Computed example of a mutant assay.
Amino acid sequence: MYESVVINLGARCNATCEHCCFSCSPSKKTSMEKSEIIELVKSFSNNLKIKVISFTGGEIFLNYSFLKELLEIVHSCGKKSTLISNGFWGANVEKVKIYFKDMKELGVTNLSISHDDFHAKFVKTDCIKNILEESRKYPSIRVVVNIAVSKSNMGNKVIEELDEAALGIPLTKYPLIAVGEAENMADSEFQKIYSIDNLEQLECPGYEPVYHFDGNVYPCCSPAVFDTALILNDRACQSFDKTIEKMNANLLLYIMRKEGFRWFIEIVMSNQEFSHIQIEEHFSSICTICRQLFKSEENIKLFTPYMREYYEQML
Rank of each mutant, 00 (worst) to 15 (best):
N92V: 10
E281V: 11
K192Y: 00
T304H: 13
L171A: 03
K157N: 10
H115P: 13
R12D: 00
I50P: 14
C204T: 07
M1F: 09
E189M: 05
I231T: 15
C221N: 12
K151P: 02
F66Q: 06
H75K: 14
C13K: 01
N271I: 07
D197F: 05
E183V: 03
Y207S: 13
L71N: 03
F100I: 13
C127F: 13
D117M: 01
A249Y: 04
S35H: 04
N299T: 10
G168R: 02
F240Y: 14
A91V: 13
N156F: 10
I131V: 14
E3L: 04
M103E: 08
A11S: 14
M307Y: 09
E69P: 03
L176M: 05
L48Y: 02
N130D: 09
V144W: 08
E181G: 00
S35W: 00
G87Q: 09
A249N: 15
S150L: 00
F55K: 11
M185G: 01
A186K: 07
T228Q: 04
Y174T: 06
T172S: 01
L67Y: 09
Q191H: 02
S150W: 04
L232R: 03
N156S: 03
T16H: 06
T82V: 06
S35A: 01
D214A: 08
S188L: 02
I193P: 01
A120W: 03
E94A: 13
V179H: 00
A236W: 05
N63Q: 12
Y174I: 05
K137V: 08
S85L: 07
N248R: 09
V93S: 11
K301M: 11
F261C: 10
A229P: 05
L232F: 10
I231G: 04
R235M: 10
V143E: 09
V123Y: 13
N63T: 15
K51A: 09
C221S: 10
N198C: 06
T304N: 14
S285I: 02
K80Q: 07
G206K: 11
C237N: 12
K258L: 12
R257S: 15
K192V: 02
A148D: 08
